[in-house]
Computed example of a mutant assay.
Amino acid sequence: MLNLHIKNETSKLKTVVLGTALECGPIPLPEEAYDPKSLEHILAGTYPKEADMVLEMETFAKVFEKYGVQVFRPKVLHDCNQIFSRDIAFVIEDKLIKANILPDREEEFEAILHVVDKIDPKNILYPPEEVHIEGGDVMPWNDYIFIGTYTGKDYPDYITARTNKAGVEYIRKMFPDKKVKSFELRKSITNPKENALHLDCCFQPVGNDKAIIHKNGFLVEEEYEWLVEYFGKENIFEISPEEMYHMYCNVFSIAPDVVVSERNFKRLNTWLRAQGFTVEEIPYAEISKQGGLLRCSTLPLVRE
């Protein structure tokens, strides 16, 4: 049996599901794109090749191996993009919450049933249909659960709006002892530099008390200010629109002092090292063309 345990984003990682890029299918048509960044690369003819993405993910897997992390991979589905395992489910405390994702991604959850079967059924939550929520928007942070959302009246018009108000309320109800804090995110279907697909595209804690953040990803300035105050200005690394576009916020913590980052994130990686972090740099630029990066590719199940 797997005893789930996730209290925050950075405690020492024990067990994780890492997505797979095998058999991820042909280049999508423009109308099949789920986010503006994928669309941009489809139109430009620079959409990533499967072989390159497989190589990047295997490099990530080797880092987990180096740190003694138990890694599960999804069952490979033919012609299906299974890279972003964070979208299909997420863990808070000892509960696995199945995300209500875009309907044509339902089979991705079925591909991790060999992992789900190791979890006590009473610890698996299946939110009702009206609850839209994805793991990229949900960040357990000790007493808090931070959630990215979009509650504008035009929510149904945005394929990039992933977590709705019902999603926030559902988490509030399921975890009554936690302080649930939601943040309205900026959404765009056409401009990847103006689109925070998930909360982890514009914010992420690192270590015990630090954070990476992009101000323009937040629609409400007071909500952004709240985070700055909570972590303290001196503990925050502010990123530019260009850096958000390249997914600088979407690194991944293996431990409070170990961060896996993209090798091209020079400015961020220098800052992390100056703060005392060990930075494991890996190539992940091809995968980033699909609008997700390191955190998106992982589904942590157990941290210390």
Rank of each mutant, 00 (worst) to 15 (best):
V279L: 03
S288C: 04
T151P: 11
W226R: 07
N81G: 10
E222T: 10
Y150W: 05
E222V: 08
E9T: 10
M247V: 09
E222C: 08
L301N: 00
E129G: 15
G217P: 11
I287M: 04
P283E: 06
E40Q: 10
H198Y: 08
Y230S: 12
K7T: 15
E110W: 03
V116A: 12
A255C: 08
G136T: 13
S297V: 03
L199F: 03
G292T: 04
D200Y: 07
F277R: 00
A61E: 05
L39N: 03
K118P: 14
T149Q: 13
V168W: 05
T190A: 14
V16R: 07
T20I: 08
Q204S: 12
L301D: 02
T151Q: 09
K178T: 05
N81T: 14
S38R: 06
E31M: 13
L113F: 15
K14S: 10
G167K: 05
F252H: 11
G68E: 09
E65K: 12
K210G: 01
E31C: 15
N191M: 12
Y284N: 12
T59H: 09
L199K: 00
A196P: 09
A211Q: 11
N123F: 14
P48W: 08
V279W: 00
V71F: 02
F277I: 04
T10S: 11
A196W: 06
P26M: 15
A89L: 03
T151V: 11
S182A: 12
K12S: 15
S288V: 03
V54R: 01
L227C: 14
A99W: 00
V279A: 06
K95S: 00
P36D: 13
F146T: 09
K178G: 06
V228L: 12
S261L: 05
K98T: 04
D52F: 00
P192R: 12
D154E: 03
K233C: 11
K118Y: 11
T149D: 11
V91F: 04
D177V: 07
R273T: 03
P205M: 08
T15Y: 02
L219E: 10
L185D: 01
L268R: 04
H78N: 13
D79A: 11
N269H: 01
F218V: 05
E107Q: 10
G19Y: 01
E130C: 15
V302S: 00
T15V: 10
M53C: 03
